[in-house]
Simulated assay, not measured.
Amino acid sequence: MQRVNKAACLLLALGVLLATGCKHEAKGYWKDTRRYYREYLNTPAKLDLEDKGEVAPAEARLAEGFAGIDIQLRALERALENSDRRPDTAWAKQMFQRFPWISGLAAVDSEGHVMAQQPEAPMKPLDFSPLLKEDTKQNMRALRSYVQDTPMGPEVYVGVPVYSGTDFRGLVIAHFDIRALLPYSSRPADLMIAAPGQVMWPGRFDAQATPIASTDWGSVVTKDVYGSVSNANGEFYWVSRYLGNLPLVFAVPEAGSFPEKPEQLAILKQAAALGSANTPNEPVTEIQPAYPELDESEGSILTKPAPQASDDQKVKEEAIR
């Protein structure tokens, strides 16, 4: 209050000087007035880059663990929603360049028949049919996601519905192994990743000994977006992030002691190889929209038949099954 009164007195003095014709002195007082105004009344904002605020240790570890992964997932969502171009070969190449961690791309029609896919003969047995089911809690044109548990690890699917006017034509789908995203985490060994009904990445922990495996995430995430869960061994701090309509849960230990399985971390050395084998060397940072119509033209992977798998690949697929 004292500082404000001081500035007010200066303003009053300035008015008196102007009224008496003391222009030269008034000019000096005007400079002082502006300085006091900026210093006391309209102080410029200052950003303290050294102030990290009050963050709990578990919150900091969780942020370090999942932030890089979340950035990649958000970018994939935007690319699928906003690409505004026919999903042809050029589009697929750009997607593989921008997201080297995805396993593949596919297009299915409204009946679930695969019209085309890259790579032409995927190693995992893929099931696109759950994406055809509409979620009544979301817009019918919104992204749809789900996780498939395969013998070679969990596969996450993200599909964007394709319409011609009001007619549902099918889905353009990107799919990936969640473990291919671990190189983007600063603390992959401390991080656990789950979805309703399954643990997708256990980190260094024995998943069944943690509350992450025993929690009904389908119910929990409808009430909260972050929090703590515990069992007899201790407590985990978690946060949920949606990929389309699929809630993904990221968690780190907060208290207690949990049994570990360090052999699970061996996959970290090979995590990058779980992405697409078609990844070009040159990076692409932006997908340019082309704004064409989705029609029957040659080159659209919605209408181009998928190549048949080779005999060797069929043997591999049978072995997986």
Results as ranks from 00 to 15, higher is better:
residue 235 E to G: 03
residue 28 G to R: 10
residue 134 E to D: 13
residue 183 P to V: 08
residue 143 L to F: 07
residue 92 A to H: 10
residue 307 P to R: 13
residue 297 S to M: 11
residue 162 V to P: 00
residue 67 A to E: 12
residue 255 A to R: 13
residue 258 F to C: 06
residue 42 N to A: 15
residue 216 D to N: 15
residue 126 L to W: 08
residue 310 S to Y: 04
residue 316 K to Y: 10
residue 163 Y to G: 09
residue 245 N to C: 10
residue 120 E to S: 14
residue 308 Q to A: 13
residue 66 F to N: 01
residue 207 A to D: 04
residue 101 W to C: 02
residue 45 A to S: 07
residue 292 P to H: 10
residue 4 V to H: 10
residue 71 I to H: 11
residue 273 A to M: 12
residue 36 Y to W: 14
residue 293 E to G: 05
residue 234 G to M: 07
residue 156 V to R: 03
residue 271 A to I: 06
residue 228 S to P: 00
residue 161 P to L: 08
residue 22 C to K: 11
residue 7 A to P: 00
residue 210 T to P: 02
residue 295 D to H: 09
residue 264 Q to L: 13
residue 238 W to C: 04
residue 50 E to C: 13
residue 250 F to M: 02
residue 187 R to Y: 01
residue 206 D to Y: 07
residue 285 T to M: 09
residue 135 D to P: 06
residue 81 E to P: 04
residue 165 G to T: 06
residue 130 P to S: 06
residue 219 S to I: 04
residue 60 A to M: 08
residue 195 A to M: 06
residue 87 P to R: 02
residue 315 V to H: 06
residue 320 I to C: 05
residue 162 V to C: 05
residue 256 G to E: 05
residue 150 T to F: 12
residue 84 D to C: 11
residue 58 A to N: 09
residue 161 P to E: 07
residue 46 K to Q: 13
residue 207 A to I: 04
residue 91 W to Q: 00
residue 116 A to V: 02
residue 297 S to L: 14
residue 18 L to G: 11
residue 5 N to D: 12
residue 303 T to V: 15
residue 39 E to G: 08
residue 179 R to N: 09
residue 31 K to C: 07
residue 32 D to L: 14
residue 2 Q to I: 13
residue 124 K to Y: 11
residue 263 E to K: 07
residue 40 Y to R: 05
residue 85 R to G: 09
residue 195 A to W: 04
residue 215 T to Y: 02
residue 21 G to C: 10
residue 62 L to I: 05
residue 209 A to I: 04
residue 234 G to K: 05
residue 166 T to A: 12
residue 91 W to P: 02
residue 160 V to T: 08
residue 133 K to F: 11
residue 190 D to A: 09
residue 110 S to H: 11
residue 159 G to S: 09
residue 65 G to M: 03
residue 83 S to M: 10
residue 173 I to K: 01
residue 99 F to A: 03
residue 290 A to G: 06
residue 79 A to P: 03
residue 252 V to R: 00
residue 320 I to H: 04
residue 30 W to Q: 11
residue 172 V to N: 00
residue 160 V to E: 02
residue 112 G to D: 05
residue 119 P to I: 12
residue 158 V to S: 01
residue 303 T to S: 14
residue 79 A to W: 03
residue 166 T to Q: 11
residue 107 A to H: 05
residue 78 R to T: 13
residue 210 T to V: 06
residue 142 A to R: 05
residue 205 F to Y: 15
residue 153 G to T: 09
residue 231 N to E: 08
residue 62 L to R: 03
residue 84 D to N: 15
residue 244 G to F: 05
residue 97 Q to A: 15
residue 25 E to Y: 12
residue 90 A to S: 10
residue 78 R to S: 14
residue 287 I to F: 04
residue 32 D to F: 09
residue 131 L to S: 05
residue 88 D to H: 07
residue 105 L to Y: 04
residue 18 L to S: 05
residue 265 L to Y: 08
residue 10 L to I: 11
residue 125 P to E: 08
residue 228 S to K: 08
residue 48 D to N: 15
residue 225 V to Q: 10
residue 319 A to N: 07
residue 34 R to D: 02
residue 69 I to L: 14
residue 284 V to I: 14
residue 242 Y to D: 05
residue 297 S to H: 12
residue 180 A to S: 15
residue 62 L to P: 01
residue 158 V to F: 03
residue 75 A to K: 12
residue 106 A to E: 00
residue 92 A to P: 00
residue 1 M to V: 13
residue 242 Y to L: 11
residue 222 T to E: 14
residue 54 E to Q: 12
residue 203 G to W: 02
residue 199 V to T: 09
residue 281 N to S: 14
residue 59 E to V: 07
residue 83 S to P: 03
residue 273 A to S: 15
residue 98 R to K: 15
residue 98 R to Q: 15
